[in-house]
Amino acid sequence: MDYRRLTLFAGHYGSGKTNLALNWAYWLRDQGLPVTVADLDIVNPYFRTKDAEDELAEHGISLISSAYANSNLDVPAMPKEIYALVEGRACYGVLDVGGDDRGALALGRYVPAIRAENDYEMLFVVNGARPLTRTVEDTLSVFQEIERACVLPFTGIVNNTNLGAATTPEDVLASRAYADELSSRTGLPIKMTSVEKRLAPALQGSIDALFPLSILGLYYMEKEGMHYGEINL
């Protein structure tokens, strides 16, 4: 899979951006590249990149994250180090943008520098199983709202359609029509279809540019009491 110096993941909130950003960072690191993840999320109070800080460090990946992330202070602040990543060009950057247009708004201030360097990929992450992006029409309006908010056009689509741990290979196969239509309506390529690692063998060969996610659920799956499916109510 080809890559640029900066990879930005944006989309509807809850579409899987943070998880993808982490997995993409690991993948870049596996190519032997110096990698930094930047958390631009000013929307989500819980389940943030910060949860993975120690694990990222162990793998030699730096994290730029708000000093207030995961604290009790609800302040939508952006860390100054993001400028060093965007303008410094010393290492590969993975930017985890906040959800929807409100989250993408925060990206706008870095756009002139990103455009000037012109070595980036701006990916639109979609999950067709989310209630407000189930139809192509609804998804396209989110797409347009984000582009308007951050003034950086998308360059590709990531089909991340899933139902968490309940996802089946059939769910992923069924989402192809949705992703293909999005692709033709926006004129953008499907950069990858991301799936949980356990689903990859069943889908290998049926789907182009399959991207198996080796780390899942943003570590909150490992936090106590949050495993899916324990409670059968």
């Binding site: 809850g14 989500n44 109070p45 819980y46 389940f47 199983a129 209630p131 139902l163 968490g164 309940a166 909150y220 009491g225 949050m226 899916y228």
Partner: peptide, 13 residues
């Protein structure tokens, strides 16, 4: 509680 509000799971509406 906040966790219930923020966590994501499949739902049959």
């Amino acid at each position: 509680d906040g966790t219930m509000g923020q966590m994501m799971e499949p739902v049959e509406l």
